[in-house]
Each structure stands twice: as C-alpha cells, then as structure tokens.
Amino acid sequence: MAQVGTDRVKRGMAEMQKGGVIMDVVNAEQAKIAEDAGAVAVMALERVPADIRAAGGVARMADPRIVEEVMNAVSIPVMAKARIGHIVEARVLEAMGVDYIDESEVLTPADDRFHIDKKAFTVPFVCGCRDIGEATRRIGEGASMLRTKGEPGTGNIVEAVNHLRLVQSQIRKITSLSDDELMTEAKEHGAPYEILLQIKKEGRLPVVNFAAGGVATPADAALMMALGADGVFVGSGIFKSDNPSKFAKAIVEATTHYEDYALIGELSKGLGTAMKGLEMSTLSASDRMQDRSK
C-alpha cells in the first residue's frame, strides 16, 4: 500500500534540495532564468520581499495565476508562500499542486497567535526560525524544513547570520545537557521536550535548515554554508541585482563550492551591482518582518 504525506516523504523532499539554492521569482521568465542557472527550486511570488517592503499594506498569497504560470514554466519544484496561520491559502496552494509551502513572515500574518497545523497536510511546509524555540515549535507543528528568518528584502546578511549562529550554538548546548537538565531547557525555550531529546540524540535538527533573509552576493551564500546552513534561499538578491542571470549562476556555484575561495573570487568579478540593501538600524519596529511570529 502506498502512503502519501508521511514525514519521510515530506522531509525527504527537503533533503533532496540540500546544497542548493532556492530562488524567488515572480513570473515564468524569471523562473526559467532560475532553472537555467541551476536553482534546485523556485518560490513563486507576486512580489519579491524588497518590493513587498516598499509597497507596504497587507501582503497576501500570490495570485494563483502567477503560481500556475511558474509551475508550467519549469520542471524543478515550485514553492509558494501562505500567510502565517492562513489555513485556506495553504489548502488552495496544496490543491494547485505546489511542491512546498512556505508559511512565511514575509507576508502579513493572518493569525497572530497560532501557526498552521502542518501535520494535517500532504504537502510539506518550510517555516522561518530565529532560535531553537521557534525551530522546534515549527517542527512540532509539522514543518518538514526550516530556514533562518534573517530580515527579508534588506539584502543585509547580518540577521540571517545571527539566527543561524544562535540555532547552531543552541544545538551544541543541547547535545551536552543531561536528560534531567533538558526539561528545564525545554521550558526556557518553550520547546517541545521530545524534539529536544531527538536533537540531543542525533546531534542535529531532525529536518533540513536553510539560510534565508538577506543573501545578496555569492560570498553571502558561501558564508551561510560555511556557518552550517544546508542550502540557501535567495529572495530579492537575484532579480534586484544588475544582472540576474549572472548573479543566479554565481550564487549557485558559490553555494556548491563554498570553501573554494579562489573560485568565489573569480565568479564575483564584474558581477555588477548587488541589490542596494538596508541597514538594520534604519528599520522601525513595524518594518521588522522577523518579529511577526514567534
């Protein structure tokens, strides 16, 4: 008997993306550029995060026509974003056959208390996290993949670095705790105890963890890999740069060969200007997408 939507099948899908780059696209043409550059998947959106930031207002699930257009354009997997807690947007995307749903703080949350019960879905979910508490709560809700939140649409890597470093160091701490200390650790992080036990046993998260939120250059992508990310999401970084096709290819290569610094230097030559970027201190509290969920 065939079983669909098992943990193994949902998490396994993310395992296949490891070492790769997932790119935000807003139409078929961009999706093809991403696929040709070697992206392992594309995220179909109505606007990239930098434009969502600029536009203001309420950001919702993309027009299904855009998602459909992207699905028809490429043979690599297609992801799409649903608002946090918006069960119906997620069900619509699942019914359309998208391969992965990002329950994302880039969109305006539909529920400021609860996330989607992702275990109830056949389609797998990816969610953002800033620390081990958020990471394990999302896994507890059924997320099959994680990514750092970073600060989307800024082209500034600092927050993604903070989030990845924090999660990694918290994992290292958990592996060193005794079982009785672990319960207090769980309490302090608001983390499901069973998942912390699993992390302690395996020495790693039970799902893949990508970097996201601020990757703008090949060196940024390689930095996140060097810090232990399983792969990289690039949102605004590619199609807000001078030469998207070249940027996309260079970021893919730098992700694969993140320890080959001569190569990264070579492929960063003459790339043109990266997206402009924002300094964190210029963001007001309401501009910080990462604070939209816990």
Binding site: R8, V9, T122
Partner: peptide, 8 residues
C-alpha cells in the same frame, strides 16, 4: 508532483 510522493 510532491503531493503524490509516497512510500511503498
């Protein structure tokens, strides 16, 4: 697509 992925 992914929603049809399975184990058997």
């Amino acid at each position: 697509r992914q929603v049809a992925s399975f184990e058997a």
